[in-house]
Design a protein around this nucleic acid. Structure first.
Lengths: 225, 225
DNA sequence: AGTCGTATGATTGTCAACAATCCGAGGACT
DNA sequence: AGTCCTCGGATTGTTGACAATCATACGACT
């Protein structure tokens, strides 16, 4: 970790609305705010120790991201995921992650695989500790890293919301996980296929990965038309 | 257009922030606000005839969508598209529209093709009138309809920003359009392939469509790794 | 009993004033 | 000439108060 003159980049402290939005996203993601609950401005403002102005600005961000639903003169509510949404989320994720994977395949595969391996190790550790939360965290981080490795600002931006919604699915449906070994291994196989440069295998594995998740979370539906 | 009891759905007038965000998006899209320009809160508030509160809320929406860039204590600016962004935008669009097309192929292809045809006709009319603005509008509408036909809320949400950015690219680089006939015909071919149920052709045509655009707007770069 | 109107409390939407910060011009000093 | 400091104008960030709207409970009427 050396510091170089080239590493200097313009500072711009995040705006208050940005900070609050960030923390709100986390709270929604980890399930502390279950879907459908109303967010009272006054109480939230007190909790964050800011006035209602910046808080409302933060909430408008989440509205545009689709995480909150706004009813005029009535309030803002955490979105509720209907059955059809599960398929929609995973179909969208497949679209994004497929594109990200393709970018990775024509880039620095080895460094990407190395970063992915770290998240797989984290999954292994979480599995050994029998810590389902850490396992899900590492799982999502795998996909986050994959998308980040693509280097695409826009894929990353779009994926952020999708991964939050994925977490909401998992929390809401408290899915009966498949054997953790298998779940971890699947990520390992994707990583290996990336390292090997086997593009068709990567795409096939990704599709299977999403398809499995959909069938587990919303039995009876499928990604394949 | 008959009215049925089943058509009744809960009314929820759009919030003021939503209306302003909508109009701001349009202004940014059609190029009245060129990239890099600062948006003064006071002046905009006067123009929209609202106070700064709702205006700021609207702007926060565009920030989270990536259309505005926020510098604390300095202001909000319309994003500037750097050379690499052109490729990023079209790569992301390909990911989204590819997924949308796949959904359409396993759905009601004929009704989708019918709706797409309407936009192609609009392109033909615009071409005959020699109206480049109308041509671009119809072009974007084609892709908007394609994504809407997929029925995916999330694909639609993600595409909205991408199509705005596409318009910004076109305005900024005022590209030397290819022969309009060819441009219109390409959309016609995609529509026809959808109607025919020829999935491989649809995907190939879509990829070519995006690849052509990238090479036209950012010579020397390509989508294909 | 059931329905309609009304009052009430709470919540959201809006606003205008105040505080914090930044940019640029001008001057003092080396 | 060049650098640094300071000050003024302008813009953004924040706040608390006020207006508009909604949900609920209660009572009058049929």
């Amino acid at each position: 970790m050396t510091m170089d003159i080239a590493d200097i980049e313009p500072v711009d402290r995040e705006s208050t609305a940005g900070i609050i939005a960030h923390r709100l996203r986390e709270v929604i993601m980890n399930g502390s705010l279950s879907p459908g609950t109303q967010l009272g401005e006054a109480e939230l403002a007190r909790r964050f120790n800011v006035s209602r102005g910046p808080l409302r600005e933060a909430m408008q961000r989440l509205v545009s991201e689709g995480l909150l639903r706004s009813e005029r003169y009535r309030g803002l509510f955490v979105i509720e995921l209907e059955p059809g949404d599960v398929r929609d989320i995973y179909a969208a994720r497949l679209a994004i992650e497929r594109a990200a994977a393709l970018e990775v395949m024509s880039g620095d595969r080895d460094s990407a695989a190395a970063m992915l391996d770290e998240t797989v190790w984290a999954m292994v550790a979480a599995a050994e500790d029998n810590d389902p939360t850490a396992l899900s965290d590492a799982d999502l981080r795998f996909h986050e890293v994959l998308i980040a490795a693509s280097g695409s600002k826009r894929l990353a931006r779009m994926a952020r919301v999708l991964l939050i919604e994925t977490r909401m699915c998992l929390a809401q449906l408290q899915s009966t996980y498949r054997r953790v070994d298998e779940r971890v291994a699947e990520h390992g196989r994707i990583t290996q296929a990336i390292r090997d440069g086997d593009t068709p295998a990567v795409l096939a594995l990704l599709e299977d990965h999403m398809e499995d998740a959909v069938q587990r979370l919303a039995p009876g539906t499928t990604l394949r038309g």
